[in-house]
Design a binder for these strands. Structure first.
Length: 407
DNA sequence: TCTGGGGTCCTAGGACCC
DNA sequence: TCTGGGGTCCTAGGACCC
């Protein structure tokens, strides 16, 4: 029986690396990064050193994404390391979605390098030959944009996504329900979408080693042990997923900025400078999106890699830098365990489009609100025009100076 | 193993109210 | 008061994704 929906999942092969390779070629580099051992990674001397993407030759040395650069270099000393450039990736990402929109508007941008297409409506035009259609999309991206993708075809998003993860690069795979037993069930349970390290370890203990083992487990037992998640993961293992392809981008629910610092922060003043800088970016992004934050949080990771946080609901949702900073600074004082800080972050959530008007006569801040709003607006405008380098609040200048001096 | 940054969603406990 | 149960809100933490 023919499925009632046809879903494609398009996944760029080693996205960041492929895009860097193109960019380097464009700038006259004689070497295609895709053909040699290479990685996109942060700078270990700044403690940002993890592998974000690796070439297929680098993969052959056992380099995996997410691992420390230092470890990757031990596996392959001649690997070329390039720093990430997110604005470049955004450009290639858009080029790909623009091209895919020409096939169908029924497209969900799932991440910077992945999207889903509901191809059901293309049934007549392509006479049910979805395999050829997928090849057409894949080849046009390769020939017109210069990078390769995998396309997964199935009757729902979950199976299409599992299918695009099969043999790479530049390939089309199908994974219909009748193919699950052969193509998906023999895989280790950790390969299933939404099964990460923690649950994988628990499944091993339970004797659940493959996706098939999970599919054949007692769903009630899983539900009892893992709650909602247990049922969801059992359904995934059985290829059950009726979630729609969401063409509308959903409103942001959280917005945060965090940073791993080059040297541990050990004093309150330095922490406050970082908090101000982080509040500034968060505020700017909120204002740009037209959103107001109802909850403000501070996240800390200490030198022993322990994380903790403190958050607070505020009465009047805000997008004002100084309001965010003052709340964050207060939370920091309550939360900080006086341990050396490796990472510090400011996060906002409970985002709303318009602030709920709750005028509080006793809130001294309300009277200065309009002043601050126009200050924020002028700063944003100047940053928009000249780039964020040219305008920073006084205390941020000091932070940058201290930073330079410590180098 | 010298281990990024930005998200989404869920759970669990305590406060508070009826 | 030696007592109860349910609903909602808030907060902390942790799982997962790319």
């Amino acid at each position: 029986m023919a499925p009632d929906r046809i879903i494609f999942h398009i996944d760029v092969n080693s996205a960041f690396l492929s895009w860097e390779a193109l960019e380097h070629l464009k700038k006259g580099s004689g070497v295609d990064l895709r053909t040699v051992p290479s990685i996109v990674a942060g700078d270990p001397s700044k403690r940002h050193g993890v592998v974000l993407a690796r070439s297929i030759p680098a993969k052959k040395y056992g380099i995996v994404t997410g691992e420390p650069v230092v470890k990757a270099v031990k596996k392959c000393p001649e690997a070329i390391i390039v720093p990430p450039s997110h604005d470049v990736y955004a450009r290639y990402s858009k080029a790909m979605t623009d091209l895919l929109y020409s096939f169908s508007p029924d497209l969900e941008k799932y991440s910077i390098d992945e999207c889903f297409i509901n191809a059901t409506g293309l049934r007549l035009r392509y006479r049910n030959d979805f395999f050829s259609l997928a090849h057409l999309m894949k080849n046009r991206i390769r020939d017109e944009l210069g990078f390769t993708v995998n396309v997964g075809i199935s009757e729902n998003k979950l199976l299409a996504k599992m299918a695009s993860d099969f043999d790479k690069p530049d390939k089309v795979h199908t994974l219909f329900k009748e193919e699950m037993q052969e193509k998906m069930w023999p895989l280790p349970v950790s390969r299933l979408f939404m099964v990460g390290r923690a649950s994988s370890a628990k499944f091993q203990v339970m004797g659940i080693k493959t996706i098939g083992d999970l599919a054949r487990s007692d769903v009630l037992l899983l539900e009892q042990k893992f709650g909602k998640y247990g049922r969801m993961i059992w359904e995934y293992a059985n290829g059950i997923d009726d979630s729609p392809v969401q063409t509308q981008e959903s409103e942001a629910k959280d917005l945060s900025n965090e940073t791993t610092v080059e040297f541990d922060i050990t004093d309150r003043d330095t922490a406050r400078l970082y908090l101000l800088s982080l509040s500034e970016t968060v505020g700017m992004r909120l204002r740009k999106a037209g959103l107001y934050a109802g909850v403000i949080a501070v996240n800390i990771k200490n030198s022993s890699f322990e994380s903790y946080s403190k958050r607070k609901k505020i009465n009047n949702p805000t997008q004002d830098t100084m309001a965010i900073f003052e709340t964050a600074a207060g939370l920091f004082d309550e939360a900080w365990r006086k341990d050396p800080i490796r990472l510090i972050g400011v996060a906002t959530s409970d985002l709303v489009r318009e602030p709920v008007e709750q005028l509080n006569m006793f809130d001294g801040m309300s009277s200065r609100w309009s002043e601050r709003k126009s200050l924020n607006e002028s700063i944003d405008k100047i940053r928009e025009k000249y780039g964020s380098k040219y305008i920073v609040r006084g205390s941020l200048l000091k932070l940058n100076r201290d930073h330079e001096r410590n180098k």
